[in-house]
């Protein structure tokens, strides 16, 4: 028994050099010539095909962490590796969905989706066909030729989602993607996310303020402390027993749901108080 326990981590770490979708090692980020510490020595691995939620109070550095993973910012210390290769800038292997609407207003829905594939050099005929498929995936096939101007916020986000998914990224990064949406649309988008990720098998990181959203979407929650941002807790949502629930009410009925929610709220309160 002991020998197995001793050999296992070594074994898996050898295997992991190529299969860990993302490894964050000792990442620190300081601003204003080192006087403001946004992230302090953060390390974690993402697991393949797992949805991880970054949760924490405002200003805890979770957005900075996501942007460093995306390659849009650089760590002051430490580094990020995607499938064993150091991250040196943004790239289509790490697709990103922003809180602000990023569907391009000068392109129709289908042209927006095509844009992502065009950047990757997919031939025209192929990308036109696939763009329609991805629009269908986000239930926008009827609006293929509509422009973002005439779309609701939720529809614009779905266009951005289809555009990113059409690039088939290894990792999907989401920065409060539903933060600007109203409660009902947010709920629809969350259900759509579960549906999409079940189908597309993606490793996902989603930032959220919303504890309920985190529990609903995530298989794992990384809770950040505020200033400097460190990992306060790394919680595996075992109460879901490896399943994802499309319907929120089924999830809430599970034993362990209330306890986890209570714990997260208590942690959030603790962090907000601590910084005051």
């Amino acid at each position: 028994m002991q020998t197995i326990a001793a050999t296992r981590p070594a074994e898996s770490s050898v295997r992991q050099t190529n299969t860990v979708p993302l490894r964050v090692s000792n990442v620190s980020k300081t601003y204003l010539k080192g006087t403001f510490k946004s992230l302090d020595n953060v390390s974690f691995d993402l697991h393949a095909n797992e949805i991880t939620a970054f949760v924490g109070p405002s200003g805890c550095g979770k957005t900075t962490m996501l942007r460093i993973i995306a390659g849009l910012e650089y760590p002051s210390n430490g580094g990020v590796e995607a499938f064993g290769k150091p991250v040196r800038g943004p790239g289509p292997d790490r697709g990103m969905i922003f809180q602000a609407y990023t569907s391009f207003p000068w392109l129709s829905a289908v042209q927006n989706v095509e844009y992502g594939m065009r950047v990757l050099g997919v031939p025209k005929a192929e990308r036109q066909e696939r763009a329609r498929d991805f629009l269908k995936l986000v239930h926008l096939e009827r609006f293929a030729d509509a422009y973002p101007k005439s779309m609701s916020g939720g529809m614009k986000q779905r266009v951005a989602l289809a555009r990113t998914l059409s690039q088939n990224p290894n990792i999907l990064l989401m920065d409060e993607p539903f933060g600007a949406l109203d409660a009902q649309v947010r709920w629809e988008m969350q259900e759509l996310m579960i549906e999409l990720i079940e189908r597309e098998q993606k490793t996902v990181v989603a930032i959220t303020h919303d504890i309920e959203e985190a529990i609903y979407l995530a298989d794992r929650i990384i809770f950040f402390t505020r200033q400097p941002g460190q990992i306060k807790a790394d919680i595996s949502l075992d109460f879901k027993m490896g399943k994802r629930y499309r319907q929120k009410e089924d999830l809430i009925a599970l034993p362990g749901y209330g306890e986890l929610e209570r714990r997260l709220f208590a942690m959030m309160r603790e962090e907000i108080k601590r910084a005051d």
Partner: peptide, 14 residues
């Protein structure tokens, strides 16, 4: 021009 447009394009590998 919203910086998110530029960043979205960069993350798509542009």
């Amino acid at each position: 021009v919203p910086k998110e447009f530029v960043e979205a394009s960069l993350t798509m590998g542009a």
